[in-house]
Design a protein around this nucleic acid. Sequence first.
DNA 1: ATACTATGTGTAACCGGTTACACATAGACA
DNA 2: TGTCTATGTGTAACCGGTTACACATAGTAT
Lengths: 329, 329
Amino acid sequence: MATIRDVAKRAGVSVATVSRVLNQNGYVNEETERRVRQAMKELNYKPNEVARALFKKTSKTVGLIVPDITNPFFPELVRAVEDVMNIYDYTVILCNSDEKVEKEREYIEVLKQKYVDGVILTTNQFAPEEVEEWDVPIVVLDRPLHERYPSVVADNYEGARLATRHLYEVGCRRIAHIQGPNHVVNAMERFRGYQDEMRALGLGDRQLVIQGNYQLKQAKEAVMAALAEHDMDGIFAGNDAMAVGALKAVQQCGLRVPDDIAIIGYDGIPLTEMTTPELSTVSQPIYEMGAMAARILIKQIEGKPLEKLHYQLPVQLVVRQSTSRRGLT
Amino acid sequence: MATIRDVAKRAGVSVATVSRVLNQNGYVNEETERRVRQAMKELNYKPNEVARALFKKTSKTVGLIVPDITNPFFPELVRAVEDVMNIYDYTVILCNSDEKVEKEREYIEVLKQKYVDGVILTTNQFAPEEVEEWDVPIVVLDRPLHERYPSVVADNYEGARLATRHLYEVGCRRIAHIQGPNHVVNAMERFRGYQDEMRALGLGDRQLVIQGNYQLKQAKEAVMAALAEHDMDGIFAGNDAMAVGALKAVQQCGLRVPDDIAIIGYDGIPLTEMTTPELSTVSQPIYEMGAMAARILIKQIEGKPLEKLHYQLPVQLVVRQSTSRRGLT
DNA sequence: ATACTATGTGTAACCGGTTACACATAGACA
DNA sequence: TGTCTATGTGTAACCGGTTACACATAGTAT
């Protein structure tokens, strides 16, 4: 690997001049620049990003901490972040935290040691004082952390109301909600949306909440248990994976979807189009959320002002077979 | 951020001594070491990995190039790589190539500039001479690149034979194969397995090949078209996504799975358990493949000898509802 | 003619680690 | 007593970039 000194020697100039050509700053004579570029080409010179990072304290690298890439909600988010970062010449270090604060903390430490320029994280588990101490630009994604920190989230509350109302409009009166883990803010917001909409529909005293943890298997079992005890004709699942679990449970009990029980999920992941019947869902603009978080982080890194600190993107009701009953809707 | 010189000053020693404590090499007096560690703790000192990387030409970072994290086959693979790398204190830079050689080449260049210690890649599109020039340890995953380079793949050929034979045993005689893209080696191996098994079953002249590209939508349409023209009672799809596409197409034509047409996929991604009926598939040990590739890369990086250069992992037939007919199997 | 500014280039310190080499001391062995 | 080895520590160069500062020249305004 050729170094800047090799290039300088070959072009008959000093390293400072080569560096100026490289960074397009300072004065460089046209003819000199030509010679330098020629030398670079001949030596196939590529600047060493590590040396550059050491001096500039910036590495053109960002960290992305997600709970688990294996959870089908995240690949698209990750992809979006990677795409945008790539455009601006940043690379992305991927970290899976399994929702464990301790792992998140460790990753932050490692990322800082590598001089990452910023971090996007999907968590709501940190105290703002701790984040402050990290002293690295961050953007939180999918889950609001604290008003101090820029965030990109979807409108969970409104989405939950939409879903609940949709079930009502399709004829459901005994609407159950499968709730996500209660340490996750967006799950709580969706729950709140369900509660408020139920009250607004005059079904406040007919609420039925099933505890889930955003996972298919656990949701399936919880729904099986609930079906044995309670009567219901509609299920609003806190995410799509749990909606699939509910679908399986309902079918396994010999009931028909949507005729006996209508089901709607949340997130809008591709999976929802693959089941039979296809699942209705409240779709979040996943790619757009990731892309926006990336753009905001870059703005922060480059010291540009943010127009807004908190972005809340709209969600959209997607009606498919799992809630399409008897000509209704 | 405290530097090694700050620590040295506080402990009343030279930077060399601090470095020795840090790296546990050279002689250091016990009492001195105690003082140094004390100073580190007081200053909350964390060594700067960038400075270290510059000198050592090694960064405790590896690159992972996959076609598209959004493709449901890859998240588990990526997760496995990340998990193992994490254990050995490496971090992972994730790159999506969209199967484009040009993007792969660019990523390699960027990764090298960052002094990554090695790269895991999922491609079969490079000439060995080019890879040679990169001069960075690599391991290829899922698709063999060249005998020169360590690889971890599953037994695609045998898996395809298993799937085909299974359809036969379940009563199918007109077995179609949805083929993956022909620039992807594993797709071709599966195709070859299908051909050979069909011949071995005495169905050599009953082969029906549908061209797919590993994507659900395209496969669905191709199967729709094929159903209109040909008669078939079994479909072996080159991957699970296409199997779902086939399932949709068959159901949409008013035919029953598995009674009219049995379907089996390939890969064993979680999605196969979410459809109705659940899909039979040939399951690859995805996590294990990723983990093994990571371990091999680390061995290479650390200059340890590899017992074997090429690992071919066994696959497993997973029978579910989509091929369970009339009490057979 | 003088002062000032814009242009162009080189030297060397610096970023924060690592390590070759020099040097010092103490105990062991002949 | 002299030599050798093991132990312990510091100085300074080095990794490969960036940039403050110095210096030189030419053109321009006064």
